[in-house]
Amino acid sequence: MKFFDYARATELSEAIGEFAKPIAGGTNLLDLMKLEVETPSRLMDINHIGLNEISPHGDGLRIGALVRNADCAADLRVRRDYPLLARAILAGASPQLRNRATTGGNLCQRTRCTYFMRLGTRCNKREPGSGCDAIGGVNRDHAIFGATEHCIATYPGDMAVALAALDASVQIEGIDGSRQVSLRDFHRLPDGDPHLDNVLTGGEIITSVKLPAPVGGKQIYRKIRDRASYAFALVSVAAIVTLDQGRITRADLAFGGVAHKPWHDPAVGRALIGNEPSDQLFSEAADLLVNQAKGQGGNDFKIPLLRRSLIAVLREATGIGGNDVRNL
């Protein structure tokens, strides 16, 4: 770890507009600082500035940026009204990490691309202009949507995938005031400048995440990974599905582990709405989803995996298939 100075903010104003790197839970930042992928010269500890409450906001909820992931998932309102969010958080990392990781920090979590995390390799995200060793390398964890010749990394988090399905928004404070960004627009695609993970500019800080009014429905977060727990997603599916009189009336979907941001393709949801659930319908929607997907070799399996995972989730959400034991 490079040497840095440490400062401890006691109110939000001290943390805004600072060149110092804010540290909250630190679970990702310190990990990367130890690898010297992140090398801030000053750390601003923002754990003592408040922003750690969940409060009603209109018909929805406002989750303070410093609410710990574990507290968010355990919050009774979140569990009752936004089970998708609770489930996505609980699918991520480990209990120990969720006890430290915060709402804002989790959104700023950086990629787990092995080349990004290892000095001495070419990585446009870590060192703009150096190239991308993941292309043509070991890339089973990498993106199948929105990748460019500059970067094929994925955003690795779970919580944000649920927030994308929930159409949450991110409240941001900077020296020029505050602004609100849809969660779906908060993270960005790599384009030509993959060193930028999201739309935050220097000195800006996330202050909260706002959840719209609860929408009910069946809410599912399905995460496929290489071991049963404590692993990043190969792919994940966040789904909110509502049925009315046998027809799908709502289908809000988002996908993790497949792009530089939580992947949201409104056309897939639209293809489902108004229809009766069936395997054929779900297969068509899944085909629509992966239509534009492109593998890098090592991650080609993600395309059929995502397709089939979506079908499984839609079946579960609409009660097709059931859970009975059948002897065939």
């Binding site: 440490y6 401890r8 540290i23 839970g25 630190g26 679970t27 310190l30 990990d31 500890d45 754990n47 003592h48 710990r68 574990a70 480990s94 209990p95 120990q96 990490l97 006890n99 430290r100």
Partner: peptide, 20 residues
């Protein structure tokens, strides 16, 4: 893993100076 203010955490991913 240690317990900080009742919560289990990874002590490798937090700084001594942050324990004030």
């Amino acid at each position: 893993t240690v317990i900080v203010d009742g919560s289990r955490v990874n002590s490798c991913l937090t700084l001594a100076v942050m324990q004030d």
